[in-house]
Design a protein around this nucleic acid. Structure first.
Ligand code: SF4
Ligand code: SF4
Lengths: 154, 154
DNA sequence: GTAATTTAAGATTAAATACTCTTAATTATT
DNA sequence: AATAATTAAGAGTATTTAATCTTAAATTAC
């Protein structure tokens, strides 16, 4: 699996937030219900993204989380880095320690290229881009439901 | 992590076998020592590859495992499929069930392209190719050691 | 045919990841 | 001030993956 479950949930929640029209905070409870993700688990992930300055949170009634900056300025990579960290891009595909420092392994050429592909894709994709596409085409963000389910009445 | 530990060990062992000159069987014990992989764990992985007809084994003294066909006919993908299965290529990057069957998720375009890149890379790379390169340039197959360590006197 | 060598197979343990539960802290509403 | 709503934080449990240990089966060599 390329991304951890935590990371996947973080991405889905980020797209959810990017698709919200209002400037207000969205409660994690609501997100967890809409996205069919365990509330407490999602809370922890939101905390990570908040600690990483990608989201901002507010406690108490009318509280919740929201994007800290515009969804155009948050890339797929930002979320992946905040949750899974850089391991995917620094670690050897053969599990050997210290890639690039010591002698490479025979797989390096192929892996470096693949890795760069993944990197470019993630860095070149913003969550807004994905959210807009999701809204326009009513793509799905849970097992069954499309974006329409999450859109606030505008 | 793209590949499981089992898969990584399977790949390293396959390159090891492909780099052996002789036609004989190589004991798993020796491989496990040279490659610094737990003997029993490696044994299980070799069993998987044997069950998948990529290797053949022989019990008793002078026994061990060897490639069942030429290393030119065994691709990186063959090993990955035998050990990790097709999940990487069939599963949704966002963890949603039933990719392609139901409505896609907003990430699909990017993911499908990345996935195809990985697929082509794995299908287009044989273990012989990697083994030859490893031998010629004495690349590493363990944390420290290069291929030279494993080459039989010829 | 007995002992030594080796893979096969299954049971067990350890570690990492995923998920849940409980309590505390903050804020708004009344 | 009291209550309710909400995130924060930490402890605890469950599941999956990784690794180890034990026993059985096959084969060779003596
Ligand atoms: S140089 Fe080789 S060992 Fe290092 S990450 Fe690249 S492929 Fe892996
Ligand atoms: S179609 Fe969407 S949901 Fe399915 S695998 Fe592709 S990206 Fe994932």
């Amino acid at each position: 699996m390329l991304l951890s479950k935590s990371c996947i949930y973080g991405l889905r929640a980020s797209l959810y937030l990017a698709s919200q029209k209002s400037e207000g905070y969205t409660p994690i409870r609501k997100m967890s219900e809409d996205l069919e993700i365990s509330f407490h688990f999602l809370t922890k992930i939101m905390q990570q993204l908040t600690a990483d300055e990608l989201l901002e949170s507010f406690k108490g009634p009318n509280g919740g989380v929201r994007l800290k900056k515009s969804g155009d300025e948050i890339t797929f990579m930002d979320i992946v880095m905040a949750i899974d960290g850089p391991a995917l891009f620094t670690e050897c595909a053969l599990g050997l320690p210290g890639c690039g420092v010591e002698k490479p392994c025979p797989f390096h050429e192929q892996w470096a290229e693949t890795r760069d592909n993944i990197k470019e894709m993630m860095e070149g994709t913003t969550i807004n881009e994905l959210a807009i596409k999701g809204k326009e085409e009513n793509l799905r963000l849970t097992a069954k439901g499309g974006f329409e389910k999450f859109l606030q009445l505008e």
